[in-house]
Each structure stands twice: as structure tokens, then as C-alpha cells.
């Protein structure tokens, strides 16, 4: 009887939504659309293996496909919930708001739309939390906010978070998900790359740990700045990571990238990444790494929690 109820929508879903042949990594919007088309959000189809999954099971599994381990894209808040202790999250600089300095065509509307969609003021979440009881400064790109692109506010919030980490003598973990520097703020966006790197250079000078976690997708100006300079570089399995996106490479030099190029595993093989860590293990791995760096002399006197 239970089966009968759900069999029909399942059948309908399969017919109305053709299985995408490419990874949704390249087609984030398709993936989002896909999710919307399914009735009541009860079911989600895995874009990689085509398996239809019960949304609650997927949720319970950190939005990782129970069949093929495909890592769905998740929001900054979802990620925070998976990583941080329940003790809470002290959010920083949420009062910073985007303006439209270039009076760029359609930018204000895009910002309004992104805010409505994500319920966040901008494409980043920064603050302080505990991971297995260890205090840490966290930053997350919000991939659903204009592709996690970095404009003035994202650059400023990351820089401020890093500066505060130095003042508090805390390690920093940044989760990147970004299409790169935000076109609509022009040269100002470009220089956020330099700004965030300058802050991280000071963190390094203070001998504080920076772990960079790359998630799907991380490209452009974010790859070419803060995301690439972690003391420890981690990526989620299958995440696409690179400087230039595959479509742009194809358009510019008519070079088709080989299968599997720019994945986390490809980047690891080419020496760009230390660890590929599944979402379910991420929290434990991060906590372990934090502990490694807590045992050193520098941390002993300063970390009291």
C-alpha cells in the first residue's frame, strides 16, 4: 500500500525529467530546477546515477546520494549545520550590504533576487563556532547567491573574519564555492582577491592555521586567491575546481577537456590538493586537523575553551 502511493509520482518524475548526461556540477541551475519540478520536494533524482532518492533520506545523509555518493550542492547554512557544534554560531558582519558602485545593468535586481532566494544578505557567511569543542573562525561561500561570486561585501567579510581570527588567535577554515570574482562590481571585485590574500598573509605570519575546503564548484578569482593558499587543502569528492571553467576553455581555445579534468581527484593527482574528504567525514577530519595544530606551543597558552 505504501509503495502504491509513491510509485506513481516516481514514474511521472522519471518521464518528465530526462536524465542529464553531464554532471550537474556544470549545470547548477538545471539541478536546482530539477529539484523544483519534483512534486512537493519529496523525491530528488541524483543527477549522476539517476537514482530517485527520498528527500528525507538525502537530507539525513548530508545531501550525498545514498547510491553513488554524489555530493549535491548545499547552502552555506546547511554546511554550517553539518560542520559546527550545536553550541551555536556567532555570525559576524551580517550588516554589510551590497551597493551598486558601477550602476551595472541589472545588478540591483540580481541582488534582490539572490537575497530572496537564499535569505542571506550576501554570498558569504562568516563567524565563529566550535568544531568538536575546538574554537574556529569559519567562512562559507553561498553558492546559491549569484554563484557564490566575490564582490566587495564577500571580500570584506572574509578579510574581516581573518583579521579577527588573528586578534583572537584562532584557526580559520574557509569553504569555497564560487564562480569567481563578481563581474558586476568590476575592478573592485578583482581587488577583493588581493585584499583577502593580504589578510591571509598576515594570518600566516601569525602562524595560525588556515584550512581551505574546496567544494563544487570553485573557479576563477576565488581559486586564484584565498581558496588556493591553505596550509591544508581539502576538497569534496567530485567537486569541480579550476581557474578557467570548461566552457570558457572550449570557447576560447577550442580545447575539449578530457573526462574527469578539474575534478577534486584530478587536482589531487596534479598536486594541488592534500585530501579529498567525503562530506560525512569532513567534520571529524577537520577536528582532527585542528587538534594537531592545537597541541603546538603557540596554541597552548591562548586557546582556553
Amino acid at each position: 500500500m505504501f509503495k502504491d502511493i509513491f510509485r506513481k509520482p516516481k514514474y511521472v518524475t522519471l518521464n518528465s525529467v530526462p536524465a542529464p548526461h553531464r554532471l550537474p556540477a556544470e549545470h547548477g541551475q538545471e539541478g536546482a530546477q530539477l529539484r523544483k519540478e519534483l512534486p512537493d520536494g519529496l523525491w530528488v533524482k541524483c543527477p549522476k546515477c539517476g537514482e530517485v532518492l527520498f528527500n528525507k533520506d538525502l537530507e539525513k545523509n548530508g545531501r550525498v546520494c545514498t547510491t553513488c555518493r554524489y555530493h549535491f550542492r548545499i547552502s552555506a547554512r546547511e554546511r554550517l549545520a553539518l560542520i559546527a557544534d550545536e553550541a551555536g554560531f556567532e555570525e559576524w558582519d551580517a550588516e554589510l550590504r551590497t551597493v551598486d558602485p558601477l550602476e551595472f545593468p541589472g545588478y540591483s535586481e540580481k541582488i534582490d533576487g539572490a537575497q530572496a532566494k537564499t535569505h542571506l544578505p550576501e554570498g558569504v557567511l562568516t563567524g565563529r563556532a566550535l568544531i568538536e569543542g575546538l574554537p574556529v573562525v569559519l567562512a562559507f561561500n553561498e553558492g546559491f547567491f549569484m554563484m557564490g561570486s566575490m564582490g566587495s561585501v564577500v571580500g570584506e567579510r572574509i578579510s574581516r573574519a581573518v583579521e579577527r581570527a588573528i586578534a583572537l588567535r584562532l584557526p580559520v577554515i574557509i569553504f569555497s564555492t564560487s564562480g569567481g570574482a563578481r563581474m558586476q562590481e568590476g575592478i573592485l571585485s578583482l581587488y577583493q582577491m588581493a585584499k583577502t590574500c593580504a589578510a591571509l598573509a598576515r594570518l600566516a605570519e601569525a602562524r595560525l592555521l588556515y584550512i581551505s575546503v574546496l567544494t563544487d564548484p570553485t573557479f576563477g578569482g576565488v581559486t586564484a586567491s584565498y581558496a588556493s593558499v591553505g596550509d591544508i587543502m581539502i576538497a569534496e569528492p567530485g567537486a569541480l575546481i579550476g581557474f578557467t571553467g570548461p566552457r570558457v576553455i572550449k570557447q576560447t581555445i577550442r580545447q575539449e577537456l578530457p573526462r574527469g579534468a578539474q575534478t577534486a581527484e584530478f587536482n589531487q593527482d596534479h598536486g594541488q590538493i592534500d585530501l579529498v574528504v567525503e562530506r560525512s567525514r569532513m567534520r571529524a577530519v577537520l577536528a582532527n586537523l585542528l587538534r594537531y595544530h592545537q597541541e603546538g606551543a603557540i596554541y597552548d597558552s591562548t586557546v582556553g575553551v
Binding site: 598576515r202 586564484a224 588556493s228
Partner: peptide, 26 residues
């Protein structure tokens, strides 16, 4: 702009640029 091809991706274009930013700022 920086080179955009497979070779650049394999050798870490993003990291190479980011290191310059880090070094110059310090």
C-alpha cells in the same frame, strides 16, 4: 588574461596567481 588551457589547469594556475598576491601583499 592568464592562459586558459588544460596545461594551465594541471599545473595550478589559480595557486600560482594566488601566491603572487600573497607575496606582494607582504
Amino acid at each position: 588574461g592568464a592562459a586558459c588551457d588544460l596545461a594551465a589547469e594541471e599545473r595550478g594556475q589559480g595557486e600560482a596567481i594566488a601566491r603572487c598576491l600573497l607575496m606582494m601583499s607582504e
